[in-house]
C-alpha cells in the first residue's frame, strides 16, 4: 500500500493530508472521526500500530497515531484542547495500543476513556498526582537538576504554583544551596499552613 492508497482508504475521515513520500504520509483529523478512520484501516487488514506520540503545545495537545500500512507509515494527527484533555481508547480496535495509551496517561495526563487497564506504567508509585513529566512548564528543572537528594526533588515537583521568576529571585537572594533549600521549605510550609 503506498501513501495515496492509504489516503484513499481514510479519505472520508480526514481534513487534510500531506504526502511526504511514497512511504510516508501525514493526515489530520479530529476527535469525532479518528476512531472511524482507524476502524476502516483495521477492516482493510492494517493491524500494525507502531506507537502513539503526544506533544504538549500549551493550549492544546497533539496526539499522533503512527500506523504502519504494509511498509507505508501513516501519521494520523488528532488535536485535543488542554482544558478538555480526554480521548477515547482505541484498544478495542488496535489491542497493541494498550501500553502506548498507558504511557499517554502517565506522561501527559491525557484521560483515555474506557481504557481496560488504566494503571501507572512507567512512573514511580509515589509520583505526585496531577504532575505529568512531559507536559510543558510543569517543573523547575534547574532546581531539580541541582537538588541534592530525592526529598528535595519531590518537594520541588509537588510545589503546585511554581513561579520561575520567583525562583530566580530566590536564587539571587540565597547564594548557597543550603539557604535556598531552607527558603523553599519555609515557602512550602507556609502554603501547607494556608
Amino acid at each position: 500500500m503506498n501513501s495515496e492508497e492509504v489516503i484513499d482508504v481514510i479519505q472520508d475521515y480526514i481534513d487534510d493530508e500531506e504526502i511526504l513520500s511514497e512511504k510516508k504520509v501525514i493526515a489530520t483529523t479530529d476527535r469525532e472521526r479518528y476512531r472511524d478512520a482507524l476502524q476502516t484501516l483495521w477492516d482493510k487488514g492494517i493491524q500494525h500500530i507502531t506507537t502513539i506520540t503526544a506533544t504538549d503545545f500549551g493550549e492544546e495537545t497533539e496526539i499522533i497515531y503512527h500506523i504502519s500500512c504494509d511498509g507505508t507509515l501513516l501519521d494520523l494527527v488528532v488535536s485535543v484542547p488542554n482544558e478538555d484533555l480526554e480521548i477515547s481508547t482505541i484498544t478495542d480496535i488496535y489491542p497493541a495500543a494498550i501500553l502506548y495509551e498507558r504511557e499517554l496517561m502517565d506522561l501527559f495526563g491525557i484521560d483515555v476513556l474506557d481504557h481496560p487497564d488504566p494503571r501507572t506504567l512507567v512512573l514511580p508509585d509515589d509520583w505526585p498526582e496531577y504532575k505529568y513529566p512531559l507536559k510543558k512548564g510543569q517543573y523547575d528543572y534547574q532546581a531539580i537538576a541541582e537538588a541534592e537528594n530525592v526529598s528535595d526533588v519531590k518537594e520541588i515537583a509537588e510545589d503546585d504554583d511554581f513561579d520561575p521568576e520567583l525562583m530566580l529571585e530566590a536564587e539571587k537572594e540565597n547564594k548557597d544551596r543550603k539557604s535556598l533549600i531552607e527558603w523553599l521549605e519555609t515557602r512550602i510550609g507556609k502554603e501547607e499552613g494556608d
Binding site: 507502531t50 506507537t51 506520540t53 503512527h66 489491542p95 497493541a96 494498550i98 501500553l99 502506548y100
Partner: peptide, 11 residues
C-alpha cells in the same frame, strides 16, 4: 519520541 522494539514486544 522514541519507541523501542522491546516495548512493542512486551504484550
Amino acid at each position: 519520541k522514541v519507541r523501542t522494539p522491546t516495548m512493542a514486544n512486551i504484550p
